[in-house]
Design a protein around this nucleic acid. Structure first.
Length: 164
DNA sequence: TTGTGTTTTACGACCTC
DNA sequence: GAGGTCGTAAAACACAA
């Protein structure tokens, strides 16, 4: 009877308290205490449910983070391959054109930052691990190497890299 | 039977209306 | 002042060893 009454209304006004107490042969104080404890149990249950929901959301977020980190690793690996290929192409271009705009150090191209360089566009950064800024890579004017725009675009798309 | 963990009942302190 | 929450003690209960 107390449970049914609680489901109808969680707060206990005086009239209902007295009525329930007389119906059950209890002291009104006992009814009041029962409602207090019942509210506490109800609140505790709600908190548990809320915690379970938050935990589920948290676990899903962790999983998503793992997927994103894997994706970052995969893209970094592709970037290294792309940079190596770019170095190879630059080297081939240098030999073909015998230009003087670049220098080869440790397998990576380090170009001159001078505006008078044969490279007509881009910034000069040492790419790759240990570089000043790994986010910036040098993008030369493709015509400097004697390649057509289309062939280079094709090469970039082959490696899943878009030209900006 | 007993030790231990959980649930229920009751109370005091404090807060709000 | 009545009735609320919160924290807690004690009794009652459930259950494995």
């Amino acid at each position: 009877m107390l449970e049914l009454s609680f489901r109808e209304e969680r707060k206990l006004e005086t009239g209902r308290k007295v009525h329930l107490a007389s119906e059950l042969g209890l002291d009104p104080k006992q009814v009041a205490v029962w409602f207090q404890n019942r509210r506490a149990r109800h609140k505790s249950k709600l908190l548990e449910e809320e915690f379970a929901k938050l935990k589920q959301a948290h676990d899903a977020a962790i999983l998503h983070k793992c997927h994103l980190e894997n994706e970052v690793l995969r893209l970094k690996e592709r970037l290294v391959v792309a940079e190596d290929e770019l170095t190879r192409l630059r080297s081939a271009g240098n030999h073909a054109v015998s230009g003087d705009g670049g220098d080869v150090m440790g397998g990576r191209v380090v170009c001159s930052a001078s505006p008078s360089s044969s490279f007509s566009t881009g910034t000069c950064q040492q790419p790759g691990v240990g570089g000043v800024d790994d986010d910036l890579i040098y993008v030369p004017d493709v015509t400097d190497f004697g390649y057509s725009d289309n062939s280079v675009v094709e090469w970039f798309s082959l490696y899943g890299l878009g030209l900006m």
